[in-house]
């Protein structure tokens, strides 16, 4: 279904655009404490960068950068960062998701530790959202590229 575009303008422009999209997404993730934004928005913008890459450079080029298998692993890792930070607080003696207890590990006061905990969580969310959105996009746009699935064999 998806063929890479033969248009030079599209290819060049998207090659220029994608790095800026990634930088902007990272800014949105990191600066979520002080301005609108956070994990979800940043993750979706990252995924949009990959979508643009697929549209302009084709599936094979994109697979070299982020394969489906890697996306699946990343989505697991993303959610695990979130749940893992929660579990870390559990191990450090607080309740689940009580980031204040991270101050035992980090050399900061509890309020700052909570801020850092939020940052860690946002990164996890961003990874998960990016990977999952990219996966859903790929799954929907590559239906029928492979031999028939087992349903139609019956």
């Amino acid at each position: 279904m998806i063929r890479d575009s033969q248009d030079v303008i599209v290819k060049t422009l998207s090659r220029l655009l994608v790095p800026f999209m990634v930088i902007y997404a990272l800014y949105v993730i990191m600066h979520g404490h002080h301005s609108p934004g956070g994990g979800f928005q940043g993750g979706v913008i990252l995924a949009a960068g990959f979508v643009l890459l697929v549209v302009s450079h084709g599936l094979e080029q994109t697979r070299k950068r982020l394969s489906e298998k890697a996306a699946g692993v990343l989505s697991s890792i993303g959610v695990f960062i979130y749940a893992g930070i929660g579990a870390l607080c559990l191990i450090l003696g607080g309740n689940y998701l009580d980031y204040g207890k991270l101050s035992k590990l980090l050399p900061v006061v509890p309020a700052e530790a909570r801020s850092l905990g939020i940052l860690g969580v946002e990164i996890g969310v961003a990874l998960a959202v990016m990977a999952v959105m990219f996966t859903i996009f790929l799954v929907i746009f590559t239906v029928g590229e492979f031999p028939e699935d087992d349903r139609s064999e019956k």
Partner: peptide
């Protein structure tokens, strides 16, 4: 079950 579901595909 939440964390183990994350590890299941891995």
């Amino acid at each position: 079950p939440l964390i183990s579901s994350l590890f299941c595909p891995l």
